[in-house]
Simulated scan of single mutants.
Amino acid sequence: MSRRKIPTAIQEQVRQRAKELCEYCHASERWQYVRFNIEHIIPRDRGGTDDLENLALACFHCNRRKSNKISAIDPESGVEVSLFNPRENLWSEHFVWSKDGLYIQALTTTGFVTIEVLSLNRDRAIAIRAADREIGRHPPSNDPIATK
């Protein structure tokens, strides 16, 4: 499948809507060396479109780990569960920050499988969150969950 370029204006709308945070791990694009990806929530190869409502801002790591997945098997129940969908789900209903603010904890099965599949608590993410917390950048002041 050929890759179509998402228009710059749409990309900027996605970034503004996400307040420049990865919509999965809530890393801030502002402090990164490279811009985050515009991610298809429902991948094109599964019928997803380039419409604004099917696009999310994702850091490189979350985008790469999500790939074309939209669900995963919950290891506890053996049931297939949808991954977190930033257009249909509220982050704060599926995730919460640990008391020290370093780990994303699941509140739901959707949250659990998303944390596992996207490796939201990977070592590098924890190290970045800890360093950012030390200088007052974590959690980000523009974190949408603080306003929902």
Rank of each mutant, 00 (worst) to 15 (best):
A72F: 06
V117S: 03
C62M: 04
V117K: 05
V34G: 02
E80H: 03
T49C: 05
L107Y: 04
D45K: 06
Q16M: 13
V117R: 02
N121F: 09
E12Q: 14
R35D: 10
L57E: 00
N37V: 01
L90M: 09
Y24Q: 11
L118H: 04
P75E: 11
E93Y: 04
S82E: 13
L83P: 01
E88A: 15
L83D: 01
E88V: 15
F95W: 02
T114S: 12
V113A: 07
L102H: 07
H40S: 09
I38S: 00
F36Q: 00
N85K: 01
E116V: 09
K66A: 06
R64Q: 10
Y24S: 11
P7D: 15
S28H: 01
G101F: 10
L55M: 08
H40Y: 08
E53W: 14
G48S: 14
G47T: 13
W31F: 13
I128K: 01
I10V: 15
S28Y: 01
P75Y: 08
E76C: 04
F36D: 02
I128H: 00
Y24I: 14
G47M: 11
W91V: 04
R35Y: 04
A131R: 06
A72V: 07
R133I: 09
S82N: 12
P43S: 11
I6M: 02
Y103M: 01
E23M: 15
W91F: 06
D50A: 06
E80M: 08
L118G: 03
S92R: 00
R17H: 15
E88N: 15
V113K: 00
E39M: 00
Q13P: 10
F95H: 02
F60N: 05
K148S: 10
W31N: 12
S82T: 06
A106E: 13
R129H: 05
L57K: 00
A106L: 05
E93V: 06
A130E: 11
E12W: 12
I70W: 03
S82I: 02
R44A: 09
T49V: 10
L52Q: 04
R44V: 15
N37Y: 00
E39V: 04
L107Q: 09
R44C: 08
K5L: 12
P7E: 14
R4S: 14
T114N: 08
N68E: 14
H138N: 12
E134I: 06
I126V: 13
I135H: 07
M1Y: 09
S77A: 06
